[in-house]
Amino acid sequence: MILKGKVALITGTRSGIGKAIAERFAEEGAIVYANAREDNSIDSWAKAISRDFKTKVIPSYFDVTDHSTAKKKVLDIKKEQGQLDILVNNAGIVSYELLAMTSLEKLREMFEVNVVGMIHLMQIASRLMSRQKSGSIINISSIVGVQGVKGQLSYSATKGAVNALTKSAAKELASSNIRVNAIAPGMVETDRFKKVFEEKFSSRIEDIGMGRLAKPKEIANTCIFLGSNLSEYVSGQIIGVDGCTNF
């Protein structure tokens, strides 16, 4: 139980990668504040996971773009647990469009969620962590933020920003013993992506060296490493978990 005694806030846990991260964190003994936007949407799952792994998985309902509620929820964690050790910024939105078809309104919305919401949570969490003189912030990026990809300009732009802000924040927070890293998954077999993949991108399987999509749990396992003391000297890194994908 590598995360026993640690308190984590994970955003976007209703499905996919976020859900897998929350489950693995619980399995490793962390107290997990699992965020989702819609009230009561993860209550029964959180109860079941808490029971299965004999820990606390506590739903925390807020929209990452609602900064005042987000701040209140983070402070609630501090009040209830006295500490916040790990922040996993996973909440995000994704779209698929060519440059000429990119709606600027949707682009701004995507930046608001994927970048501004992330930075705001990092601001609050890092201020709590700096008082503790310890903490780990994990930002979920994407391979497209590193390599770029045809047909996903907006999303890749936001994830490129995530990579840059991760490196800058790591430099700024290192003296407070706060680590900041990002994980850049390749194509992941979430329910949502599986459908898109089968409809639009099945030929892309050839781009993956290992010849298969990633399991959400494989992303979560890297999160466990970055959240745990095993990575206590690792910061400012963008870790690809992509089965050797090359677009």
Partner: peptide, 14 residues
């Protein structure tokens, strides 16, 4: 700001 937040148990908005 950090010292004041600790002393008064508050957290200032950015």
């Amino acid at each position: 700001v950090s010292e004041l937040e600790d002393e008064f148990d508050i957290m200032l908005d950015t």
